[in-house]
Amino acid sequence: MQNVINSLAVLGLLGTVISLFAVSALLRMVSQLRQELTVLANSTPADSFSAASRRVERFADADGRALFVLVVEEHCHNCEARSRHLAEIAGQVPGRLALLTADPGCAEWVAGTGIAVMVDSKLLGQVAVGATPTLLKYGADGAEQWRRVAGSDADLDSYLEAGAPASV
């Protein structure tokens, strides 16, 4: 009987020690989480999502020209309208022009113009655009300078002429 009581006492002691270690580990995790949340709360949007930090190496240009990329989808009638308008004014835009899409059918909208068509789902994911059509401008070093959704042809004209919109 005494042996049983001793065994239970040892097991109890061991359980207490293990529980203390578990609580200690838990407290450490909570402490780390609080520190990370504090850092996140104090960071500015520029720290986590600045346009300049989004760089695409293949968009860089040795000749120093900017690149305007219009991100489009095939089943989006505004994308087709913006693309066809871009094709019309391509000759007046100071810089390189490209269409970025996952749908090969979009190439037809700008066929016969100097607009490059990039059908590249992986790159599309990297660029991470939420709405289409969206126009992005990249500097000669391949760094993104700004992005704006192009809700009308007039918007597209103004973004291409005026440069970086104030709100982005």
Binding site: E73, N78, C79, A131, T132, V149, A150, G151, S152
Partner: peptide, 13 residues
């Protein structure tokens, strides 16, 4: 003046 884009399967105007 109407603007429209596609966003997550919906239309934004």
């Amino acid at each position: 003046t109407v603007r429209e884009v596609s966003w997550k399967g919906a239309r934004l105007q």
